[in-house]
């Protein structure tokens, strides 16, 4: 147990070195290799997952931004459309109003003109009729000078009335 036995030391060294030589290639190399490969794979997968998550988050953010933009745009378009409609409405109304007013004025002017023409015609008709009537009456009992004064008086009366 405690006595020195160089032969046993030598056996130990030889056995250990043989075991080391065999295990190095038969066991440790494949075992540690598989281990490191798996660790690398896990690390890579984790990194991939993280990247994917980041990408997804960026995409989501982008989507949200786009959505907000679209919302804003639609709001603006709506507002513009409404404003435009309002403007068109007032414009059309104004135009219609103006044309109506124009038509009324024209009609009034026409009426006025017609009335005046009618009046003038009526006046000359009446004068002719009066002269005719007066002539007929005076033909019977009046001289021309008297008749003239009478007619003028009648015309004056008509003009007044």
């Amino acid at each position: 147990m405690l006595d020195i036995n160089p032969g046993l030391i030598l056996w130990t060294v030889i056995t250990f070195l043989i075991v080391l030589a065999i295990l190095r290639f038969a066991a440790w190399k494949p075992l540690v290799g598989a281990l490191t490969a798996r660790e690398d794979k896990i690390r890579a997968s984790l990194q991939d997952a993280q990247e994917a998550q980041q990408q997804a988050r960026a995409l989501l953010e982008e989507n949200r931004k786009q959505l907000a933009l679209a919302e804003e745009q639609s709001q603006r378009i709506l507002k513009e459309g409404r404003a435009m409609a309002e403007r068109l409405k007032t414009e059309i109304l104004e135009k219609a109003d103006a044309s109506a007013r124009h038509a009324i004025t024209q009609a009034q002017e026409e009426i006025q003109r017609e009335k005046e023409a009618a009046l003038i015609q009526l006046r000359s008709e009446v004068a002719d009729l009066a002269i005719l009537a007066a002539g007929k009456i005076l033909d019977a009992n009046l001289d021309t000078a008297k008749q003239r004064a009478l007619v003028d008086a009648v015309i004056r009366d008509i003009n007044k009335g």
Binding site: G7, L8, T15, V19, I22, L23, A27, W28, P30
Partner: peptide, 26 residues
């Protein structure tokens, strides 16, 4: 003294077991 003693035998038993087990597992 290169005699195969009890401890040499168990040196080898351990070596053989180790090679066998790790080899199979690998």
């Amino acid at each position: 003294d290169m005699s195969i003693t009890k401890h040499v035998v168990f040196l080898w038993v351990a070596a053989a077991l180790l090679i066998l087990l790790t080899g199979i597992v690998a």
